[in-house]
Amino acid sequence: MNASIITLTPTPLHFDWGTDGLVLWIEELDGANSLADQMPDVMDRIAFAIELQTGWDHRTDGDTLHPLYGYRLLLRDASGRWNAVRTDETGHFRDLVPLEEMDYERAYDQVMWLD
């Protein structure tokens, strides 16, 4: 009997992000279209970067709001289409809503009306 061990590792995260008023946008930089499957990790990295910029510390400021709270999130996938990223009340990933938009301004307007 032969046994083999298969180790699966997630695809490395290649993305850029920034804020534009109330919207935080995320753009996938490689053509693998794998970022949507790793959104919890992506959002954790962005939240940590915001913590570093603002001084918010989840270890001691547990009674304050999550760093992503209040932002509307947009993900531009490898195809160039925008998706709304919905979060739960704690600021963690819930699901994606495909917007089928290629234009950022139109996606921005649409994500502002999603609940």
Rank of each mutant, 00 (worst) to 15 (best):
R86G: 01
T9M: 14
M43A: 13
L114G: 05
D20Q: 11
Y71M: 06
L114Q: 11
V23Q: 02
P10G: 10
H14N: 15
Y108A: 12
M39A: 10
D103V: 03
Q53N: 14
D41V: 05
Y71E: 03
Y104Q: 06
D30P: 07
D77L: 13
D115N: 13
L74C: 06
L22E: 09
D109G: 13
P12N: 11
D37Q: 11
D88K: 06
W17P: 04
T9V: 12
L22D: 07
D109P: 00
H66P: 06
A32Y: 03
D30T: 08
D115M: 13
D63C: 04
D57S: 14
Y108S: 10
D95Q: 11
R81K: 11
D115P: 03
L29S: 05
L52R: 15
Y69K: 14
D63T: 05
H66E: 07
Y71N: 06
R106Q: 15
A78N: 02
D115E: 14
S79A: 15
H66N: 10
V111E: 04
A47S: 12
L13V: 01
R81N: 09
S34N: 08
D30A: 14
H14F: 13
D88C: 04
Q38C: 08
R106W: 06
F48D: 10
H58T: 10
Y108N: 11
I50Q: 08
P98A: 05
Y104I: 07
T9W: 02
G18W: 02
G80T: 00
A78R: 04
E51K: 09
D44L: 11
I26H: 00
A78F: 03
S34A: 14
D37E: 10
L8F: 02
P67M: 14
L22P: 00
S34M: 12
D109F: 01
T11V: 12
G31A: 14
S79E: 13
G91Q: 05
A47Y: 01
Y104L: 12
T7I: 11
G18I: 04
W113N: 13
W25H: 10
T9P: 02
A3I: 08
E28I: 08
P12W: 11
R76V: 01
D57L: 14
G91E: 03
